[in-house]
Amino acid sequence: MTRLQQKRLTNIIGTLFRVAVLLGVSYVIIQPMLTRMATSFMNVEELYDQSVKWIARNPTLNNYRTCWVYMEYPKALLNSLTLASVVSLCQLASCTYIGYGLARFQWRGSGILMGLAIFTLIVPPQMIRIPLYLHFRYFDMLGILKGQPLNLVGTYWPFVLTGLTGSGFRNGLFIYIMRQFFKGMPRELEEAAYVDGCGFLSTFFRVMLPSSVPGLIVVFLFSFVWQWNDYFYTTMFMSTKNFLPQALETVASKAAQVIRQTDMVAVTSGLVQDNFNTVINNAGMIMVITPLLIIYLLMQRYFVESIERTGLVG
């Protein structure tokens, strides 16, 4: 075998191996999604039916209808969209701003502050949950606000305040990402701006910010997705409001209860069993993640490209 043939052979083997691995991994990732989607169109009886595996014999939209009503879907969707947008925009703004400060100024504080930001990441959020809750329940800004402490629980303020000060969920990571990103940008850009008479702020806003879009996309997507899926902070600060994850959690039992009270035929024919939960939950889950999938599909090109340019490297 000549050297060239040998090389070609290893190339072919490499390609086959790559294809096999990628197909396997993709299957593992996509298969649960497809199962869910398939189940969400089924009747309860068809779940028992061993001959029905993927495609429902009588596809039905009933599960989706039930979810639409009992999750109060339009309202919950609007709530989730508003909160996730508010939170991710606040966090994006603050983490970019802070990350720039940690990347571009040589002073003793920057190393210490970066260390502290990493430290906030290592502490489980559950650990400071109760003090944080009490802090917002009886909000007095370390005694600066005089008089009756304010009750900020149930408002957007806890999200806005933690978001704007870079202390929300995993914001240490966002600060780190933006810092690495700014560190990788050429220093000449800044120097040119300073020479042209820009101050710190105008250099940041007019020169550095416009060229940091790839980093911004990564942080925005992470922040948005994590807030969308979040259960922890919403139950802590806004337990009375209906967001999609909470709505999904209760939809099956709510619907089952109503059916039990109103529809005797359904109860006696065994409609409201465990499998009822399964079909409803699957439909509901598809409804919760569809908006995320749409956003991901719209942004994925920029997302995947921008990762290459973020220089997340430590």
Binding site: S94, Y97, I98, Y100, G101, L102, R104, F105, W107, G109, S110, L113, L116, A117, T120, L132, H135, M141, L142, L161, T162, L164, T165, G166, S167, I175, F200, L201, F204
Partner: peptide, 15 residues
């Protein structure tokens, strides 16, 4: 550095 990191200093100490 302070100008850009003061939000984090506030957030870190308060929250």
């Amino acid at each position: 550095g302070l100008l850009f990191t003061f939000p984090f200093i506030i957030g870190f100490s308060l929250f």
